[in-house]
C-alpha cells in the first residue's frame, strides 16, 4: 500500500497540462481528485512516473448555466455539485446521485471530471451523463473537441481519450421543466460501488410516459443506455406489464461480473429491480 516514486507537476493552464502530457507520454497521468488513481498507485497497479496535478488550473473548476446547458468544469468536486443551487434547480438528479457517491470526505475531493473520465464502470456519473445526453469537452495537442458521453466509453478503464487529451468540462442539457427523475442504487454499504444502479429521466403527459431515458451503472464493462427498456415504457402508464417488460429489456443488455456483491444472476436481477423502482419514483416526481 505504498506507491512507487513519481515526479509531480502542477501546471497553471490547460495548455501547459496538455503539453506536459504529450511530452511525457504514457508515463504521465493527470491527477484530479485522486480517488481512483491514488489507490491504484498504492497497490502498484498503476505506477505513473509523472503526475500532472490539475488543481492549479483555475479555469477547470465551477458550475454555470449557458443557455439551455449546465456547464460543469472538470475539477468541480461532488461536494461543489451538492452545494450548487443551480444544479439543485435545473438538474436535481445530479445531486441525488452525488449524494450516493462514497462519503463526505471523498466528495470533498472527488471531481466530476475524474469520475466521468476514468472509465471505471463502477462510477455513478457516467451512466447519468449518458442518460442526460451530456457532452464532454476534450482538449489535447490537436485542439479541442466535443464528444457525446454515450460515445466516450469503450471498455473498462478504456475511453476514446487520445494520448495527451484532458477532459476539461461537461455540458449537460437541462431537462424539460416538470421532468421526473430518479437514481436507484443498490450498494452493500456507504462507500461501495453499485451492485447495480439505474438512472431514469422522463416526462409524463396525461398520465402516460411521454419521453424516457434510462442509464445503467456497473452492470457491464461500460455504462449503458437501456434504449429498449425506455421504449418499452413510452406511452404506458407504467403498469405492471410495462415495468416488467422494461426490467427484462434492461436485464437483457447487462453483463456484470460475478464479485463479492453477488453472482451474475443476482446483479442482473437487482439491476432490473433498480430500473423498475427508478421508473416508478421518477414518475411520481414528474409534473
Amino acid at each position: 500500500m505504498i506507491p512507487g516514486s513519481f515526479s509531480y507537476h502542477r501546471p497553471a493552464s490547460v495548455a501547459d497540462a496538455v503539453k506536459l502530457l504529450s511530452d511525457l507520454g504514457e508515463d504521465a497521468r493527470p491527477l484530479a481528485g485522486g480517488h481512483s488513481l491514488v489507490p491504484m498507485m498504492k497497490l502498484r497497479l498503476a505506477s505513473p512516473a509523472h503526475l500532472i496535478d490539475l488543481h492549479g488550473i483555475a479555469g477547470l473548476k465551477g458550475i454555470r448555466r449557458d443557455g439551455n446547458n449546465l456547464l460543469i468544469g472538470a475539477m468541480t468536486t461532488q461536494h461543489d455539485l451538492l452545494e450548487s443551487q443551480e444544479v439543485a434547480g435545473s438538474v436535481p438528479i445530479l445531486c441525488e446521485a452525488a449524494l450516493l457517491i462514497a462519503d463526505p470526505q471523498v466528495r470533498y475531493r472527488g471531481t466530476i471530471g475524474g469520475n466521468v473520465a476514468n472509465g471505471d464502470p463502477g462510477n455513478d456519473m457516467p451512466a447519468l451523463m449518458m442518460t442526460l445526453g451530456a457532452t464532454y469537452r476534450l482538449e489535447g495537442p490537436q485542439g479541442a473537441r466535443e464528444v457525446a458521453a454515450a460515445d466516450f466509453y469503450q471498455g473498462a478503464y478504456f475511453t476514446i481519450l487520445e494520448p495527451g487529451e484532458i477532459l476539461t468540462s461537461v455540458s449537460v442539457p437541462v431537462p424539460a421543466a416538470g421532468h421526473g427523475y430518479a437514481y436507484e442504487k443498490l450498494k452493500r454499504k456507504v462507500g461501495d460501488y453499485a451492485t447495480a444502479a439505474a438512472a431514469v429521466v422522463l416526462t409524463m403527459a396525461g398520465g402516460k410516459v411521454a419521453t424516457c431515458t434510462i442509464g445503467l451503472t456497473n452492470v457491464h464493462e461500460t455504462p449503458l443506455l437501456a434504449v429498449d427498456a425506455a421504449k418499452a415504457v413510452i406511452g404506458t402508464s407504467l403498469d405492471a406489464a410495462a415495468l416488467k417488460k422494461a426490467a427484462s429489456a434492461a436485464e437483457a443488455i447487462m453483463s456484470p461480473a460475478a464479485d463479492a456483491r453477488g453472482p451474475v444472476e443476482y446483479r442482473k436481477h437487482v439491476g432490473g429491480i433498480m430500473v423498475t423502482r427508478a421508473l416508478q419514483r421518477a414518475a411520481t416526481k414528474a409534473t
Binding site: 462519503d103 452493500r188 454499504k189 456507504v190 462507500g191 461501495d192 460501488y193 463479492a260
Partner: peptide, 14 residues
Amino acid sequence: TGSFMDFFMPTAVE
C-alpha cells in the same frame, strides 16, 4: 476479501 471495500466493516450509516 483484502480490503474494507469487500470485507464488511459497517459505518455509522449501516
